[in-house]
Amino acid sequence: MPQPKTRWDIFCTVVDNFGDIGVTWRLARQLVAEHALPVRLWVDDSHAFERICPEIDVDLAQQWQQGVEVRHWPSEWVHAEAADVVIAAFACQLPANYMDSMAARETPPLWLNLDYLSAEDWVTGCHGLPSVKYKTVQKFFFFPGFKPGTGGLLRERGLLERRRQFQQDRSAQRQFLQGLGIDPAPDAQLISLFAYENTGLASWLDVLAGDATPTHLLVPEGRILGDVARWLGVETLTVGAIQARQTLTVQVLPFVRQDQYDHLLWCCDFNAVRGEDSFVRAQWAGRPMLWHIYQQDDDIHLDKLDAFLALYTKGLPPEAAQAMNGLWRAWNAGQPIGEHWLAARKHWPPLQENAEAWCLEQALQADLATALVQFYVNWI
């Protein structure tokens, strides 16, 4: 493994509110904590960062958080010496002066484009291939993924063991939920909802409200709140709001730090998530889930959705796989999902078993941070 003096720079342009910074913040912390590497995280939006790391001082250009040197990425770039490993997260464009600094090094750095997560077949073939070159500096593609031959997923050391212990400890779960002001009925199913705006939500809430099984719906503040408020018939929903309709209780949660969000997912019976960071964390929760993928032009995001579904549902009985496919596709098309939810509920035991089996299967691969470090070792 590389010596601790090997310096790493990670650049993050916040595009989708929290997904980009969520991934890069987890990665930076893990490289420091588990690989003893000095890491600078360059972020262009400190206010978005502050939501998942409240200790951040948004007015500081340079600070240290959990061992990571956090630097504000200014619109007018100032000179900074290039690191030994440079990660451009999600194809963000590095400052021209910084690229010149990379090229000026006696030994060119390893330059990686950490790409978006996808289960599509072509990812395996492109992972690790050279990309563009800037003067003497070669850039390489690095793809997270679900198959051998990709970079794997972000997973901290001991994560699944901590998750299992927590899920087996009712007292710990109750204490965590109470800390967020959550007091569900003893027989209520817990569902978390973190999603983009979705016109299909109302039909799901209708079904949940009319279900004989009580549901406590936990909604972290975010873009879906407007749709929830419209269904409830209220103008706005703020943090702490609790509204009940028949057997459905809706509670709005504050935006919490990453480790707290992990615990929230671990507490829930079902997790609806969005983007990339929460998508991966829901898989490590080992519970049935629903993914709201980020919409792209020409619906190319649906190819990514179908590619993941093909992998995720391959271990399910045909009827259960069909129910999950219908639920996910309707949700991502903004269509009513109430009937699809009822269809999925008929196959709950196999869906639960599949979620845990998928989690364990993905844990057989090297985690993303370790794969990045190993890529550098092989490169030098």
Rank of each mutant, 00 (worst) to 15 (best):
D9P: 04
V15N: 08
V15I: 15
N17Q: 03
I21D: 00
V23G: 01
A28S: 14
V32E: 04
H35R: 08
A36K: 12
L41N: 02
H47E: 08
R51E: 07
P54T: 05
E55A: 15
D57T: 04
V58D: 08
H72V: 01
H72C: 06
W73P: 01
V78G: 11
A80Y: 05
A89Y: 08
F90G: 14
A96T: 07
M99R: 11
A103H: 02
R105K: 14
R105H: 02
R105L: 11
R105Q: 10
L110D: 03
N113M: 11
L114D: 09
L114T: 10
S118M: 13
W122E: 11
C126S: 11
K135M: 02
T136W: 01
F140R: 00
F143W: 10
K147F: 02
G149H: 06
L154K: 01
L154W: 12
R164T: 13
R164I: 02
R164W: 07
Q167R: 12
Q168V: 05
S171T: 05
Q175V: 08
L180A: 04
I182N: 07
I182V: 15
L190N: 06
I191G: 11
A195Q: 05
E197I: 02
N198D: 07
G200R: 03
S203C: 09
S203E: 06
D211M: 09
T213K: 12
H216Y: 15
P220H: 03
L225R: 13
V228S: 14
A229P: 08
L232F: 13
G233P: 07
E235V: 10
T249H: 13
F255Y: 13
Q258E: 12
H263E: 13
C268M: 03
D277E: 13
W284R: 01
G286V: 01
P288S: 12
M289V: 01
Y294K: 10
D299H: 10
I300P: 00
H301K: 09
K304V: 13
A307R: 04
L311D: 14
L316F: 14
N325Y: 12
N332Y: 06
A333F: 04
A344R: 06
P349H: 07
E353H: 13
A355V: 03
L360Q: 15
E361Q: 14
Q362C: 10
Q362I: 01
D367Q: 09
L368T: 06
L368I: 04
V377W: 11
V377P: 00
W379H: 15
